[in-house]
């Protein structure tokens, strides 16, 4: 039999599929994304108009598998549509943080000198705040709302990516392929974006996946405190907070959105672990 040489991508894919947490994470996240995308097609929903007071606070039945809330709204439908909000918050917030943090870290690590000193100072300042506190403080200043919560949750992740990107550049910029690119006359932006960044992408991807999990948790926390998405939006944290008032008589109102958060966060955590096994085998073993 002829042995087929594998490209690095194929090797990573094989390692990923061999990791059981990676497979489990992929299934959970895949289902989550699919359900979020299909929600408006399969079950159109308008949270502002949905109200049926005759069906208030009904426990789970076949008709309403997760029960109904204080306004008689079906919780299953709301949890389902809530997945769209949480997914969007997680992806957008981390996308912003990834872009801003990576750029900051790349520039700091590559140019060094006072640029690096200044950036490292800024990173240290942001890391001096516990992340949820910083997010709460940002929202307290710019005002509550789902968009601002997204910004706040993203902003607190910026230093994480900046640090990662900076240390990545520091280890890569002395390598020969960078010197070769420079000898060929490549400009600094080209060296950074075409040569350094693609070679250091793996840890950033792993961190981004894990950060989505954190972002979903943080955003739900903000929603719970009334600082994120606002009612009647079917956001999971908001739903838990509303259910809090009926907790002793109708615990299902808070129970199911919480389970949804847990499952979504678990999915991204598992996926991140799997990606680490696949992309960063050395880090995984230690």
């Amino acid at each position: 039999m002829v042995k087929v040489a594998r490209t690095p991508t194929q090797q990573a894919l094989r390692r990923f599929m061999r990791s059981s947490s990676g497979r489990a994470g992929l299934i959970i996240v895949g289902l989550f994304v699919l359900l979020a995308l299909l929600a408006p097609l399969l079950a159109p929903y308008d949270p502002a108009k949905d109200r049926n007071l005759r069906m208030r606070l009904k426990p789970p039945t076949i008709e309403h598998p997760m029960g109904t809330d204080e306004l008689g709204r079906d919780i299953l439908i709301r949890v389902w549509h809530g997945s769209r909000i949480s997914l969007r918050v997680g992806v957008v917030a981390v996308g912003l943080a990834l872009a801003a943090g990576t750029l900051l870290g790349l520039v700091a690590g590559f140019f060094g000198g006072w640029v690096d000193t200044l950036t490292s100072w800024l990173i240290d300042i942001m890391l001096a705040f516990p992340s949820i506190l910083l997010a709460i403080a940002i929202v307290a200043v710019i005002g509550p709302g789902i968009g601002n919560a997204m910004l706040a949750v993203g902003a607190v992740q910026v230093p994480v990516f900046a640090r990662l990107a900076r240390s990545m550049v520091l280890s890569l910029k002395e390598q020969e392929f960078v010197a070769a690119a420079r000898a060929l006359g490549a400009t600094n932006p080209r060296i950074l974006l075409r040569h350094v960044l693609p070679n250091g992408l793996s840890p950033l991807i792993v961190q981004a996946t894990l950060s989505i999990a954190t972002a979903i948790l943080d955003a739900a926390g903000l929603g719970f405190l009334g600082l994120g998405a606002q009612p009647p939006a079917p956001e999971w944290g908001v739903m838990i907070a509303r259910g809090f008032q009926y907790f002793s008589t109708a615990p299902w109102i808070s129970l199911f959105p919480g389970l949804a958060i847990m499952l979504a966060v678990l999915g991204f955590n598992l996926l991140g672990d799997g990606l680490r096994d696949a992309l960063d085998p050395r880090a995984a073993r230690s």
């Binding site: 926390g221 719970f224 944290g237 838990i240 907790f247 958060i261 847990m262 678990l266």
Partner: peptide, 12 residues
């Protein structure tokens, strides 16, 4: 599961 659970929900 422990790291994936929202604290406020576990508290409830």
């Amino acid at each position: 599961v422990g790291v994936s659970m929202p604290i406020f929900w576990l508290g409830l």
